[in-house]
């Protein structure tokens, strides 16, 4: 049994396809969750700033609850808790639901900051031309807010991609779970786990480069 307790290059080559498929699952879950999170976060972010105490309270409670509790607990509530309330979800759906609700809260704060980064005069000018509040938000404020928060959204995507490893606890065959399964049958920890880390890096490094690039571009585009 050569290679136990150390890096086994032959094993590494053999498990590459499994790790790659795990990485794809990770990417898929992260992408779906960030998209739903973006919708949820935009609505919540707007609810946080409109002059309506009920919407303010609901959105604040949601954001505080999610940010103040561990994602692992949130995943387990959705996966083990909801069935007891009569809502049985397959693990994939439970996973995407939990990640979306989680990222929605963080994205809401990003969106809120983004909207507040757009000068007040933009909304005022839009309204002065006869646009409704909703039209002014949609055509004038939000496009500028999204431009300003693109780097922050990129960072949220990276964070979520790493956090999605927690889905391994509900038996989703994402990257971390794949590594654990390989360890369970080979009793070699170094090879699959280093492989797992490498695959995470291959996804996060290009993304963070992209975020840096976007940040520089926006920095150079600062307008009066």
């Amino acid at each position: 049994m050569a290679g136990i307790g150390q890096f086994d290059f032959n094993l590494f080559i053999r498990i590459l396809p499994d790790l790659a498929s795990g990485a794809l699952v990770t990417l898929k879950f992260t992408t779906f969750s960030i998209l739903f999170g973006l919708i949820l976060g935009t609505i919540t972010g707007i609810f946080r700033i409109v002059k309506n105490p009920i919407l303010n309270a609901i959105s604040t409670a949601y954001v505080e609850f999610i940010r103040g509790t561990p994602l692992l607990v949130q995943i387990m509530i959705v996966y083990y808790g909801l069935p007891e309330a009569g809502i049985k979800l397959p693990p994939e759906l439970a996973g995407i639901l939990a990640l979306s609700i989680n990222s929605g809260a963080y994205i809401a704060e990003i969106i809120r900051a983004g909207i507040q980064s757009v000068p007040k005069g933009q909304m005022e000018a839009a309204r002065s031309l006869g646009m409704t509040y909703v039209q002014a938000m949609r055509y004038v404020v939000l496009p500028q807010a999204f431009r300003n928060i693109l780097p922050a959204l990129g960072n949220e995507f990276i964070a979520l991609l790493k956090d999605s490893s927690l889905l391994s606890v509900i038996a989703i065959a994402e990257l971390t779970r794949m590594g654990m399964q390989i360890y369970a049958v080979t009793f070699n920890a170094w090879t699959p786990l280093l492989g797992v880390a490498l695959f995470y890096l291959m996804m996060t490094l290009p993304l963070s480069r992209l975020v840096d690039y976007a940040q520089r571009r926006i920095g150079g585009h600062e307008s009066a």
Binding site: P119, G121, Q122, E124, A125, A126, R127, S128, L129, G130, V140, P143, Q144, R147, S223, A224
Partner: peptide
Amino acid sequence: RQRIGIVFQQFNLFSH
């Protein structure tokens, strides 16, 4: 408001 145009000190052109 469509019948009353206004121009502001800070221009307020839509920057995007």
